[in-house]
Design a protein around this nucleic acid. Structure first.
Lengths: 146, 146
DNA sequence: CAGGATCCCGCTAGATACTG
DNA sequence: CAGTATCTAGCGGGATCCTG
């Protein structure tokens, strides 16, 4: 074990993973993060639709399944479950079941998920802030070449 | 021009768009940004595979089509063209044609694209940095419930 | 060199119905 | 409430061939 530690440390520091390479695991991870619903789920669990104190303090929010289903408009139960499962598998969210009647299931970001949440929130905010610019550019482009 | 400036400023500041709503244009934009290739193209045009001086200084890099095709391993000509066209249409990149023989085409980030590039680079870096953690969590999850 | 056009397969993701 | 199961249409995206 000690034989690989030094090499691994260096690897971490240098980050020898490169998402530009098709075979690199980080490429696959980036593709998973570039999912239709992943970003929205992470943003929801991070605390509301616009910057909340919780999100900025680096806290997560515990949300019920049905709560997520409501907040993320348009997502089907199937896709929400599928997305949550993959995020749980990757260690980004935790799933807690409380045996009430009927059963209560809640989800929360892990520390790892929280570290990604910041970026996802920024991405969502970028879209909301610059959508007007983009739509303008789009119509200009279409008029000119269409 | 001056007539809409004030209103636009307020809209910008309040950001009345919400990507959690299925009908909101920002939702569609976020979905477009959550594309398999968009992030990588933006990162490539931002300047190299790991943090370069250019990227941090907020500069863009002019790249040829074939250059992009090489750097973003695994992308097909079709998808690269399709991605670049959509980014050009949305005002995130510019396309310049120089009439050499054979023709030379280069792409570059606009200011708008540059502002998004920062976040995309962060996302890519996150994947490269935390991929080991994720893979560990993944095998742990599979062993436990497989 | 930088694509455009076309074919076609596979998987995604929505709709619907059912359950512990 | 919190999912699961099944079916299917649609389209994303790769392969291949062609061009200014």
């Amino acid at each position: 074990m000690a034989t690989t530690t030094a090499a691994q440390r260096r690897a971490q520091a240098k980050s020898e993973f490169d998402a530009f390479l098709a075979v690199c695991p980080s490429r696959q991870l980036l593709e998973r993060l570039s999912d239709k619903w992943v970003g929205l789920v992470l943003c929801a669990l991070g605390g509301g639709s616009f910057p909340s104190r919780a999100g900025e303090r680096g806290e997560s929010r515990s949300m019920r399944y049905s709560e997520l289903l409501r907040q993320i408009a348009g997502v089907s139960p199937k896709m929400l479950t599928q997305t949550l499962r993959s995020l749980e598998r990757d260690g980004l969210v935790t799933r807690s079941v409380v045996a009430t009647v009927p059963v209560t299931v809640s989800y929360e970001l892990t520390d790892l998920g929280l570290s990604l949440h910041v970026t996802m929130r920024t991405l969502k905010a970028w879209a909301e802030t610059h959508v007007t610019d983009v739509l303008e550019r789009r119509t200009a482009y279409d008029e000119q070449s269409g």
